[in-house]
Amino acid sequence: MKKITAVIPIRKGSQRVVDKNLRPFAGTNLLTIKIEKLKEVKVIDEIIVNTDSEQAIEIAQKMGVSFHRREDYYASSKCTGSEFFEHLGR
């Protein structure tokens, strides 16, 4: 059986809405909501927060999910979505 991994990309340098996933929202934040919802999906074997944000790493650890510290280039606006997802596969 194949392993299913959910990846949550969180960039601290969001340009349109700065820190949109970490800002207070409805008594929590969007990252916490995303992790909680993904934990409800029984077929997901692992959740990884892919980020360059220390705050996002702290939330991931507190919630018992994995994290991957994103390299600077892959957290920059210079990196395309295609490059980011290709890099995930390595």
Rank of each mutant, 00 (worst) to 15 (best):
A6T: 06
Y74E: 02
K42R: 08
E58H: 11
E40H: 00
K2P: 08
V41P: 06
K42S: 05
S53E: 05
S66N: 14
Q55L: 10
T51N: 07
I10P: 05
T32R: 00
E46Q: 13
A56Y: 09
N21C: 04
Q61D: 12
K2E: 12
V7N: 07
F84I: 10
R69G: 07
S14K: 00
G89K: 08
I44N: 05
H68C: 13
N21L: 03
F67E: 15
E54V: 07
K78W: 06
K34A: 04
I47P: 04
K12L: 04
C79P: 09
E46A: 10
Y73M: 07
T51H: 04
V7W: 15
P9F: 05
N50P: 02
Y74I: 05
F84Y: 13
I57W: 13
G13K: 09
D52Q: 10
G13M: 07
E83N: 13
E54W: 02
I35W: 00
K39Q: 00
L88V: 13
L31N: 01
I4G: 09
I10A: 03
V43T: 12
D45C: 04
Q61E: 15
F25Q: 05
I57F: 08
P24T: 13
G64T: 10
V41L: 11
S77H: 15
V49S: 01
Q55F: 03
C79T: 13
E40I: 03
I44F: 00
I57Q: 13
A75I: 10
S53Q: 09
E36A: 02
D52C: 02
F67M: 12
Y74C: 02
R16E: 06
I33G: 01
V43S: 12
I44Q: 10
K62I: 05
R69W: 03
Q55D: 09
C79M: 14
I4A: 09
K42T: 14
V41Y: 10
Y73P: 08
I57R: 14
Q55A: 08
L22Q: 13
P9S: 08
N50S: 13
F67S: 14
E71I: 13
T32D: 01
E83T: 14
T28I: 03
S53M: 04
I57G: 08
D72G: 11
E58M: 07
T5G: 05
A56G: 10
K3P: 03
A6P: 12
S66L: 09
R16V: 07
G13D: 11
K62R: 14
D52S: 08
H87L: 05
T80V: 12
L31M: 02
I33S: 01
Y73L: 06
I33F: 04
